[in-house]
Design a protein around this nucleic acid. Structure first.
Lengths: 217, 217
DNA sequence: ACATTTCAGTACCGTACGGTACGGTTCGGC
DNA sequence: GCCGAACCGTACCGTACGGTACTGAAATGT
């Protein structure tokens, strides 16, 4: 199952990183002591330090390790009709909700945020560049495809994506990060996704075509 | 200037809490050692422990102390016309952006998020209840006033507020929390606020009145 | 004037963790 | 069969921090 080059770590190292990730996901950052990692992964602290430098390096490696498995479904767009476009957007939205609500994402985001106070926030940057930015790119190409097909219109793809993100996530991510258990309303990712997509499309109506088939409003 | 009962702390204690807040704002959580607080506030560690129990109690007290100064501008709504309503909304949006982008808010949110991994996340709850919820209430009453005046329509005020929040904040809070310095685009809070309000109102058009003066669409 | 409380300042203790060093074992190359 | 590298397991060290104990001074009440 390794068609994925994972990252520039050896299989053994990835194994260790997976153990460390487990630790951190269900124990928070303070559970990630070098001794605990060594114990959980059946490796020596000396190896940890040889491989990852120091504790911060280990943290960064964990983030990189996890980011490496963010698969971007290519979003290869041939000609897609409006229904297909909506469906694609909704799938994206649902994926985004699922990822951000996941234990792993929450744990890693919490750690990166906690570390953001000092040293140029390398963890935060890592997360932004290898996680969010990848996802944003996927969404932007999808949005541009939709514009090319005349389903929506916007000036700046980044700007449009931000609006889409806001409509999908709203304050949910913040609440989740703060430890508030997902409300029932949050749980219906599919419904949330549909609502967000509807709102987004409503805010970005297509340019009027010569032969306007768009009936209502 | 103390018409504000602040919280249920003595003036001296509030003084100490302010010092502690300073520490934590420009040093992150790890800067908040009991010794450092004692030194910065010219008080003894023993007093700290007598007043706040332990380090976590101190943390909670800091959050409560800061939350106590969240002033809610009453939002007393007489009859307001559409322009006034938009303006009020925009002011709210700008305030929200300003608060969330502030050092203090970011520092406190980071700490609460970091602590969310364990013990039922009391800090997160504190922040949610005394911070965000207060703000949300202010916004909801404003939204309901707008609905009463027929400027907008919606079913559920909470639901509507979430959308408004999403349109205002989008992914900015997440980026800020992760330590990304505010982009230039972020800096124009007034512009962001206007855009968000326009989008929100567009998404919640008023019910058609008998004498429909609403031209377009 | 004296007793009591409060608190600053400091010294102290236990511990937990980051990081290092070392002995023993496995494994691949020659 | 020998050598060296990689590595596990563990023991070890220094330190920093949370929390407590003690002392002496200021304040407050009687």
């Amino acid at each position: 199952m390794p068609p994925v080059p994972d990252s520039d770590f050896t299989p053994r190292q990835n194994e260790v990183l997976a153990s460390a990730l487990r630790l951190v996901v269900d124990g928070g950052e303070k559970a990630l002591t070098t001794s605990a990692v060594a114990r959980a992964a059946n490796c020596s602290k000396e190896s940890l330090y040889r491989w990852f430098g120091d504790r911060d390096g280990l943290l960064a490696a964990i983030v990189a390790h996890q980011a490496a498995k963010v698969r971007v479904p290519s979003e290869s767009a041939g000609a897609l009709d409006l229904a297909e476009f909506r469906s694609r957007l909704a799938t994206f939205a649902e994926d985004l909700l699922t990822v951000l609500a996941g234990d792993t994402s929450l744990a890693l985001n919490r750690i990166a945020i906690a570390h953001a106070s000092r040293h140029g926030a390398p963890l935060g940057r890592l997360l932004l560049e290898r996680g969010r930015e990848r996802i944003a790119t996927r969404a932007r190409t999808l949005l541009e495809a939709g514009r090319d097909q005349g389903h929506i219109d916007f000036q700046d793809a980044t700007e449009a994506y931000r609006t889409l993100y806001g409509l999908i996530i709203r304050d949910a991510h913040g609440r989740w990060l703060l430890g508030q258990p997902p409300l029932e309303e949050d749980a219906d990712f599919a419904g949330q996704a549909r609502r967000a997509v509807d709102q987004f499309i409503a805010l970005h109506p297509p340019l009027p075509r010569n032969n306007a088939r768009q009936g209502r409003s």
